[in-house]
Design a protein around this nucleic acid. Structure first.
Ligand SMILES: [Mn+2]
Ligand SMILES: [Mn+2]
Ligand SMILES: [Mn+2]
Ligand SMILES: [Mn+2]
Lengths: 233, 233
DNA sequence: CTCTAAAATTAGTCGTGCCTAAAATTACCG
DNA sequence: CGGTAATTTTAGGCACGACTAATTTTAGAG
């Protein structure tokens, strides 16, 4: 298993993540270009390359997008494991805040050794979710698919726990942190403005109420119960 | 200050290290090629590039080698600071042994943020030497030049402390560790074989005596006293 | 001082990963 | 269906950092 470039690893990771987000189908060239911040033409080139590699990492059909092969998925999961373990480690061991970890992890994920991975996993007690609530794949590449629905879909009067938050926008994370909307916090939907208006959310513990815009609620996933793992702590 | 590639950083680091080892002069193309494991022609190309950069990072004269400019030296010292702090961190915080840290640090040194650097430095109490006895530059790029002479030059009957060890060969480091020849250990030269023969060295603490070949003694630096910092611990 | 071996540079290529502009294909609307 | 707009691919190029082979320059032995 020769060493893959950071670029290749990032493409595989992005394909995996988009596959997970938008149903099952193939991932489009544009979606990848958007996510990775590169030109569409660049994506086409890389997909051809990934699909020609031995072992083949993506199945790619001209004009019809791409899909990870088992080999490609394995690598994507390894990189994602690195990323999420590193995020945990930066918070636990080095005192980073949850809005700072993503950027650092995005570079470190490509250069740490398996040794490093194992040592921080041990040190952390083998966590199964990262600081934003995303599941951490096992060493062998198993990921538990987490339950949960977008906060946007919660009906007025329903209560739930914050179980996942998108980690790409540090400003959003800082904002949520300020409001006390952190992982595993229990909330209730109080009111929903008309015409896709703000969602009024109450924190059960503090009784504070906040009006959240669509931009915010779209990036929060909630679930009926806290994660199994969390319960044990 | 745009971001420099790992390649550029490694060249600057290598030039700095060779400058330090072999007197003051300019660093030859071959010496660099050897150290970096690349073809001579590649070095010529890179030196031209480094010397054409704004700000200029090396002074380079065709057929007469290269020398770091102050700007280049500053960057080299930053990378070396990263490298050595990471080595310390891997040992202290993650339980690596002194033969494992170099390889990992060689990749990490290029991707960690200043944030990361500061946090591990704090966590470690701002150490001034790395696990092999090499000095760690300050944030502002100051390095203390350390005293010490090659073990090879010690005369029979002389006693000294092991103060530095070359960190490039893991096998050598494991060997030394086995013999108890670790940093700050006090030793005495018992006997020197003829014709550059083995050096017989006694560990003061355990009274054990070991015969060391030239390959080994060339890579150990000793000094009359332990480092100031070490004394305080 | 001259000659030659070693050191270094030039010339020409390659793979990677990105870009823009132009052409092809698809998908969707009337 | 046909036509057009959006999507995607092709074509052509560029920067980077490596390589090999050929050539130039230096330095040192005699
Ligand atoms: Mn990444
Ligand atoms: Mn995350
Ligand atoms: Mn390096
Ligand atoms: Mn070291």
């Amino acid at each position: 298993m020769k060493t893959l470039s950071s670029a290749v690893e990032d493409y595989l990771k992005a394909i995996f993540e988009i596959q997970g987000e938008e149903g099952q189908g193939r991932v489009s060239t544009s979606a990848l270009a958007e996510r990775l911040g590169v030109a569409r033409a660049s994506v086409t080139g890389m997909l051809k390359k990934l699909s020609a590699m031995d072992p083949q990492l993506v199945r790619y059909e001209r004009y019809h997008g791409a899909k990870l092969t088992p080999a490609g998925e394995k690598i994507a999961l390894e990189v994602i494991r690195h990323h999420r373990l590193i995020e945990c480690y930066l918070m636990e061991a080095l005192g980073y805040s949850w809005d700072e970890v993503h950027l650092e992890a995005d570079r470190l994920e490509h250069v740490i050794s398996e040794e490093f991975e194992d040592r921080i996993a041990d040190m952390l007690g083998h966590p199964d979710i990262d600081p934003h609530g995303h599941p951490i794949p096992d060493r062998d590449g198993t990921v538990r698919e987490l339950e949960g629905i977008p906060l946007t879909q919660l009906r007025v009067g329903q209560q739930a726990y914050i179980s996942r938050v998108s980690d790409h926008d540090p400003a959003l994370l800082r904002y949520l942190d300020q409001l006390g909307l952190t992982l595993h916090v229990k909330i209730e939907v109080i009111e929903r403005g008309p015409f896709d208006g703000p969602l009024h959310v109450r924190l059960i513990s503090s009784d504070a109420v906040h009006a959240l815009g669509r931009q915010v609620t779209d990036h929060i996933i909630v679930s009926e119960r806290v994660s199994e793992r969390r319960k044990r702590l």
